[in-house]
Computed example of a mutant assay.
Amino acid sequence: MRIIVSGGGTGGHIYPALALIRTIMQKHPDTECLYIGTEKGLESKLVPRENIAFKSIHITGFKRSLSFENVKTVARFIKGVSRCKKMIRSFQPDVVIGTGGYVCGPVVYAAAKLKVPTIIHEQNSVPGLTNKFLSRYVNKVAICFDSAREFFDEKKVVLTGNPRASEVLGKSNRQVLQTFGLKEQLPTVLIFGGSRGARPINEAVVKSFTRFAQKNYQVIYVTGDVHYEAVEKEIALVGEKENVKVVPFIHNMPEVLRAVDLVVSRAGATTLAELTALGIPSILIPSPYVTNNHQEKNARALSEKGAAFMLLEKDLSSTKLIEMIDRILLDKDQMIKMRIASRKLGIPDASGRLYEVMENLTAVSH
């Protein structure tokens, strides 16, 4: 089998793509894969590390306001489609899969015009401009939130879940808490704001340090590399606390997620897929700076089912954050209810489901 995969811009588009590729390689070790991304995107670093062939195109996203840059974007799209058609004719893929980000636009569109079977994967509850555009041309649209159905042609839609979720599953081992100098038996909350961190979350957590020290639970607090030094200076003023551990980044996130009882985070699609796969209760602070406010809509998909509490950034404070953490970690009945609700929203074997969609599509085309 020969496949082309495209996805870029953020880890939320790239990690599901890599998870799917790993699943395909496990089932068909002789599969040849080409990943098409942008040269400056995160994918240009992550994909080659996985020993996956990588090629790049130059493309930018549309501005939502009137701008001359949009004229340039159209020109780049046309040029990108032409370049992608050459790559596709040369590689001869059985299927082309787009996992999001504007780089998918010319790649998947070119494949559809060449009559190659195509799939797009939408991780969010509300699709971005690129997937809305591509949905008119592709054979199948894979979604992660049932609420995303309304944006696409129902005949094309398949609920698969997020392939990244399959990779966090595994046996829980609370001994990993010892690597942070924490105790295995105490309830534990993990707080993070994404790979780069989030300043408003950092500020609320720093102001909570003294009160955290009085609690019968413990905190792992991930600042993000960019903010770590500044946060360390703030912490030095109040003094370190035994039950609060601060780190810039966590490389073994799946292992840590399996060991904690509660997560406080943004509401990115990949994070939510991981939380629901593991059945972890959460406090979600959606980023208000994302396209179409999709993180708030993602968060509502969990909070309305009782799997999470949603805390808007404009309402975020140390007092409110601690109050919500207490309501969950210090109430066993609340914890159990939220765990059950979260697990119900998880979609098992998402990678396998998306693989089946791909396999069925290629079987029909042959």
Score class of each variant (00 low, 15 high):
2 R>F: 06
4 I>G: 02
6 S>W: 07
6 S>F: 09
9 G>W: 06
13 H>C: 08
17 A>I: 04
29 P>K: 06
35 Y>P: 05
40 K>N: 15
41 G>Y: 00
66 L>C: 03
66 L>G: 07
69 E>G: 12
72 K>M: 14
84 C>G: 06
88 I>Q: 05
90 S>V: 06
102 Y>F: 15
117 P>F: 06
123 Q>G: 13
125 S>W: 05
128 G>P: 05
135 S>D: 08
148 A>Y: 04
150 E>K: 15
153 D>T: 11
154 E>T: 13
158 V>K: 09
159 L>R: 09
159 L>G: 11
163 P>M: 10
168 V>C: 02
168 V>E: 00
175 Q>T: 13
176 V>K: 10
177 L>C: 05
182 L>T: 06
184 E>C: 12
191 I>V: 13
202 N>L: 11
202 N>P: 14
205 V>L: 08
214 Q>W: 11
215 K>H: 12
220 I>Y: 02
232 E>Y: 14
232 E>G: 10
247 V>P: 11
248 P>Y: 11
252 N>T: 06
256 V>H: 02
258 R>H: 08
263 V>C: 11
264 V>D: 00
267 A>V: 03
271 T>V: 15
279 G>Q: 01
288 P>Y: 07
288 P>N: 04
291 T>W: 01
291 T>P: 09
292 N>R: 14
300 R>D: 11
303 S>Y: 01
305 K>R: 13
305 K>V: 01
309 F>Q: 00
309 F>H: 10
311 L>A: 09
314 K>N: 12
319 T>F: 12
320 K>M: 13
322 I>K: 08
328 I>W: 03
332 K>R: 15
336 I>V: 15
345 L>F: 08
349 D>L: 10
350 A>H: 01
362 T>L: 12
365 S>K: 13
